[in-house]
Design a binder for these strands. Structure first.
Length: 203
DNA sequence: TGCCAGGCCCTCTTTAGGGCCTT
């Protein structure tokens, strides 16, 4: 049976919280199936507000770059159509989820509730890591760096590789045969001290 | 072009505080 596909998503934004008026400036989605990234979507978008200088420096996305980009609503409609009904994955998922849900709500679309988090999973599967930032985990696990960090497609692809590695390590380490998105949604909520037993019992 | 969060998780905890992680 082929592994179920998931959509790994990453936003670049004008800031940390849509409740402050922050909007996305770029989105990327990498569809992971089996051991490969099989499809991609990426677009800059015009957030309709200035990007703070420190954020421009962090992401490399400038006001000039988004000035001629399509508006957020256009890009988010395309992104939602691209994702379809696939279960979603992100690194520090609460951050991407709140932008995803806020922007889809503006369009009157229903967001998917299932959002797995590679940060929560990595804390459980790699407790020995010096920290659990995406870049640190990529280097620690010797996974491919996909491009400039803090650009959406590079981060989405790196999170995709991390997702595949976590999935494979859990399956091998604990002998879990069919660990799909639903299994990892449950695993990310299990207290760290109980992860071994949860995995050995098959979730 | 600055200021603003919030969920998770650990511990010198649980009537709390602070670090991590995302842009």
């Amino acid at each position: 049976m082929p592994t179920e596909p998931v959509a790994v998503i990453d936003f670049e934004t004008t800031g940390l919280n849509p409740a402050w008026g922050d909007r996305p400036t770029e989105v990327a989605i990498a569809v992971v199936q089996g051991d490969a990234i099989v499809d991609r979507y990426q677009s800059l978008m015009n957030p309709g507000r200035p990007i703070p200088h420190d954020v421009q420096q962090l992401t490399g996305i400038t006001d000039r770059m988004v000035a001629d980009a399509p508006p957020v609503a256009t890009v988010m409609r395309e992104a939602a159509r691209f994702v379809g009904g696939l279960p979603l994955v992100a690194h520090n998922a609460p951050f991407d989820r709140k932008f995803w849900e806020m922007e889809l709500a503006r369009l009157g679309e229903q967001p998917q509730p299932a959002f797995a988090c590679t940060l929560l999973l990595a804390r459980r599967v790699y407790p020995q890591a010096p920290n659990h930032r995406l870049g640190t985990l990529i280097d620690l696990l010797r996974l491919p760096r996909a491009g400039r960090a803090h650009r959406a497609m590079a981060d989405a692809e790196m999170a995709g590789h991390l997702w595949m590695r976590i999935r494979d390590d859990v399956r091998q380490r604990f002998g879990v045969r069919e660990a799909g998105h639903g299994f990892f949604m449950r695993l990310q909520k299990v207290p760290k001290a109980k992860v071994d037993r949860f995995c050995r019992d098959g979730g």
